[in-house]
Simulated scan of single mutants.
Amino acid sequence: MEAFTYNPILKSSGLPLVLPRKPLRPPAPGTALVLVPRKGDLLTIRHGESIPDAWYGTYRHTYLVDLREHRLVLHIPLLSSDPAFGFPSLVRLNCRVAEPDEIVSRGITDVSGALYLPIQSMLRRVSRNYDIGELHRAEDALTESIRGFSGDAALRLRNITVELVVDNGEILASGRAYREIERETRLMEMRRERHLRMLRRDGAEGLVAEIMEREGPRAAYELIAGAEREEHQELLTAWNKVISEAGTELEPWEVVQAERALRDRVTGGSSAPFGGIRSGRLRGSLYAGSATGAGHETPSDAVMEEHGTAENGSHRPSRVRGLKLTKIDDADG
Rank of each mutant, 00 (worst) to 15 (best):
A3L: 15
G14P: 07
P16F: 10
L24I: 09
P27I: 04
P27R: 01
P27L: 00
G30C: 02
V36C: 05
D41Y: 00
R46Y: 13
E49V: 08
E49Q: 07
A54Y: 10
A54V: 09
Y56V: 14
Y59T: 03
L67R: 06
L79F: 10
D82T: 00
V91A: 03
E102G: 03
V104Y: 02
G107M: 03
T109Q: 07
T109S: 06
Y116R: 14
L117W: 13
S121A: 13
R124Q: 14
S127G: 04
Y130D: 04
D131E: 14
G133D: 10
E139T: 04
E139S: 14
E139N: 10
T143K: 08
S150Q: 11
V166T: 10
D167S: 07
E170K: 12
A173W: 04
R179K: 13
E182N: 12
R192A: 13
L196D: 11
L199A: 12
A209F: 09
A209Q: 14
E213D: 11
E215N: 05
A220F: 05
L223G: 06
Q233K: 13
V242K: 00
S244M: 13
W253S: 09
E254A: 02
R260T: 15
L262F: 00
R263H: 13
F274I: 02
S279M: 06
G280A: 11
G284H: 01
A291N: 09
V303A: 07
R316H: 07
P317I: 01
S318Y: 14
S318R: 15
V320F: 08
G322H: 09
I328M: 08
A331N: 00
D332T: 14
